[in-house]
């Protein structure tokens, strides 16, 4: 029968081993050779777009890379799906955009801000998502 000492060794040993493997896999999957996100394309404009994305908590309604609040559409392939003009109109709208009656906050972004966000969406749209990009966006092109 298992003793308390053996149970403790199982807890400490198992935790240590899996934690070390986890760190190893993290280092491996974030290494340059394994980059699937085309990190070299992250320009200052993309970073500004990401900051706007965060400071307005867009993830509080939308999803991106499948993460968010499921209240508004997934934006991973939004530029490819809707086109730049449409996305820009939504972002710059002075009144709440409300397709099918569900309202978006009227952010009224400036043209430059809208361009920054679009650059961010374009960078997101080119990430290799291990096949999810085909499922998540009905109109995204088959790869």
């Amino acid at each position: 029968m298992l003793s308390k000492k053996q149970a403790r060794a199982f807890f400490l040993g198992g935790t240590l081993v899996t934690f070390l493997i986890f760190i190893g896999l993290t280092v491996y999957s974030l290494s340059k050779s394994q980059d699937q996100a085309h990190s070299e394309n992250i320009t200052e404009q993309v970073v500004r777009g990401k900051m706007l994305w965060e400071s307005n908590n867009c993830m509080g309604c939308h999803t991106i890379l499948g993460e968010g609040a499921y209240y508004a559409p997934e934006l991973t392939k939004v530029v490819e799906r809707r086109g730049e003009g449409y996305v820009k109109s939504v972002l710059m709208s002075p009144v709440p955009w409300a397709p099918h009656g569900r309202k978006m906050v009227a952010y009224g972004f400036s043209e430059d801000e809208a361009k920054d966000l679009i650059a961010f969406f374009k960078w997101i749209g080119n990430i290799d998502l291990n096949g999810f990009d085909r499922v998540v966006s009905p109109l995204a092109k088959e790869k």
Binding site: S29, A37, L65, L129, N130, G131, F132
Partner: peptide
Amino acid sequence: YYYIGVNKIWL
């Protein structure tokens, strides 16, 4: 990590 843009090893 399956579908957020990192290595398939996580699958």
